[in-house]
Amino acid sequence: MDITDKAVNLAHETFDKVASTTNRAAEVLGEKGEQLITVEQHMMKNCRGYVRDHPLTSLGITAAVGFVLGRLLSRR
């Protein structure tokens, strides 16, 4: 085996390792993305339930947040 063949084999091995690692990372990111979607849906369901059960408190919170954001953004 000459040096060119060794270099080609090393390049192929390196490419295979990078491809394997990239595939695994993509799988993990896909799983985490699904988990985030599930958590988001759960939080939205809880939020809707809270607003439905406590409409006046929700309105007060919304007004307070709007006031604070308005003050923060008007300073810029």
Rank of each mutant, 00 (worst) to 15 (best):
K17C: 04
T14P: 01
G30R: 03
G66M: 06
S58H: 02
V28C: 02
L72S: 05
D53R: 10
D16P: 01
G33N: 13
D2P: 01
I61A: 05
L59M: 13
N9K: 15
K32S: 08
C47V: 11
G33P: 01
E40C: 05
T62M: 07
Y50A: 15
K17P: 00
G30K: 04
N23T: 14
C47P: 01
L56Y: 02
T21C: 03
M44Q: 13
F15A: 15
G70L: 07
V68A: 11
F67H: 12
R76E: 05
R75S: 12
C47E: 04
R71H: 03
V51W: 00
E31Y: 03
L69R: 12
V8G: 00
G33A: 08
D2V: 01
I61L: 11
R76A: 08
M1S: 14
A63F: 10
M1E: 10
V8F: 02
L72M: 13
I3Y: 02
P55E: 04
M43A: 15
V28R: 09
D5A: 14
K32V: 14
R75Q: 13
P55T: 08
D16R: 11
R52M: 08
I3D: 09
R48C: 06
T14M: 08
S74V: 09
G49K: 07
R48F: 02
T14Q: 07
K45Q: 12
R24D: 01
E27Q: 14
D2E: 09
H54R: 11
A64S: 11
